[in-house]
Amino acid sequence: HYVEVNGKKIQATSAEEAEKIAKKFAKIYNATVLDLGNYYKVT
Protein backbone atom coordinates (compact mmCIF):
# COMPACT_ATOMS: atom_id res chain seq x y z
CA HIS A 1 0.00 0.00 0.00
CA TYR A 2 1.20 3.45 -0.78
CA VAL A 3 0.10 7.01 -1.33
CA GLU A 4 1.05 9.07 -4.37
CA VAL A 5 1.40 12.79 -3.67
CA ASN A 6 2.71 15.13 -6.38
CA GLY A 7 4.27 12.15 -8.17
CA LYS A 8 6.08 10.96 -5.01
CA LYS A 9 5.23 7.59 -3.55
CA ILE A 10 4.91 7.29 0.21
CA GLN A 11 4.99 3.72 1.49
CA ALA A 12 2.39 2.67 4.06
CA THR A 13 2.22 -0.52 6.10
CA SER A 14 -1.55 -0.97 5.71
CA ALA A 15 -4.54 0.25 3.75
CA GLU A 16 -5.75 2.08 6.86
CA GLU A 17 -2.43 3.87 7.25
CA ALA A 18 -2.36 4.73 3.55
CA GLU A 19 -5.83 6.24 3.84
CA LYS A 20 -4.80 8.31 6.88
CA ILE A 21 -1.70 9.61 5.09
CA ALA A 22 -3.71 10.42 1.97
CA LYS A 23 -6.34 12.33 3.97
CA LYS A 24 -3.64 14.25 5.84
CA PHE A 25 -2.00 15.39 2.59
CA ALA A 26 -5.36 16.14 0.99
CA LYS A 27 -6.10 18.48 3.90
CA ILE A 28 -2.69 20.21 3.57
CA TYR A 29 -3.00 20.68 -0.19
CA ASN A 30 -6.79 21.17 -0.17
CA ALA A 31 -6.88 18.25 -2.60
CA THR A 32 -8.98 15.18 -3.36
CA VAL A 33 -8.17 11.60 -2.37
CA LEU A 34 -8.70 9.00 -5.10
CA ASP A 35 -8.99 5.39 -3.94
CA LEU A 36 -7.41 3.45 -6.79
CA GLY A 37 -7.68 0.03 -5.18
CA ASN A 38 -4.10 -0.79 -4.26
CA TYR A 39 -3.10 2.80 -3.59
CA TYR A 40 -4.39 6.27 -2.88
CA LYS A 41 -3.64 9.28 -5.05
CA VAL A 42 -3.88 12.84 -3.80
CA THR A 43 -4.82 15.21 -6.64
Rank of each mutant, 00 (worst) to 15 (best):
N6K: 07
Q11E: 10
A26I: 05
A22H: 01
S14H: 03
S14I: 03
A31T: 12
K20T: 10
V3Y: 01
K23V: 08
E19A: 12
K41P: 05
Y40R: 02
Y29E: 06
K8N: 08
A31G: 15
K8Q: 11
N6G: 11
I10E: 00
T32G: 06
A26N: 03
N38C: 12
A22F: 05
E17W: 08
E4H: 04
A15H: 14
Y40A: 04
H1F: 15
K24D: 11
L36N: 07
S14E: 02
T43I: 15
G37M: 05
Y40P: 04
I28V: 08
N6H: 13
A22R: 01
L34E: 14
N30W: 09
K27P: 03
K41G: 04
Y29H: 10
K24M: 15
T32N: 09
E19G: 08
G37C: 09
E16D: 10
E17V: 08
Y39A: 05
E17P: 00
I10C: 13
E19L: 15
V42H: 03
D35Y: 14
V5H: 05
Y40G: 04
T13M: 11
K27T: 10
H1A: 08
I10N: 00
Y2K: 03
N6R: 09
V33N: 01
D35I: 13
V33Q: 01
Y29G: 05
K23P: 01
K9S: 05
V3E: 00
V3I: 07
V5G: 01
K27Q: 13
V42K: 02
K41T: 08
Y29T: 05
A15V: 11
I21W: 07
L36Y: 13
N30E: 06
A18W: 05
E17G: 04
K8Y: 14
I28T: 06
Y40I: 11
K23I: 11
K24S: 11
V33I: 13
A31W: 10
V42C: 07
I21G: 00
T13F: 10
N30R: 08
N38Y: 13
Y40N: 03
A12V: 09
G7M: 03
Q11K: 13
E4I: 13
N38V: 09
A15Y: 08
A26L: 06
A15S: 10
Y2V: 06
I28A: 10
A26Y: 03
D35W: 14
L36W: 03
K9E: 05
L36H: 07
D35R: 11
E16K: 13
A31P: 01
Y29R: 03
Y39K: 03
L34N: 08
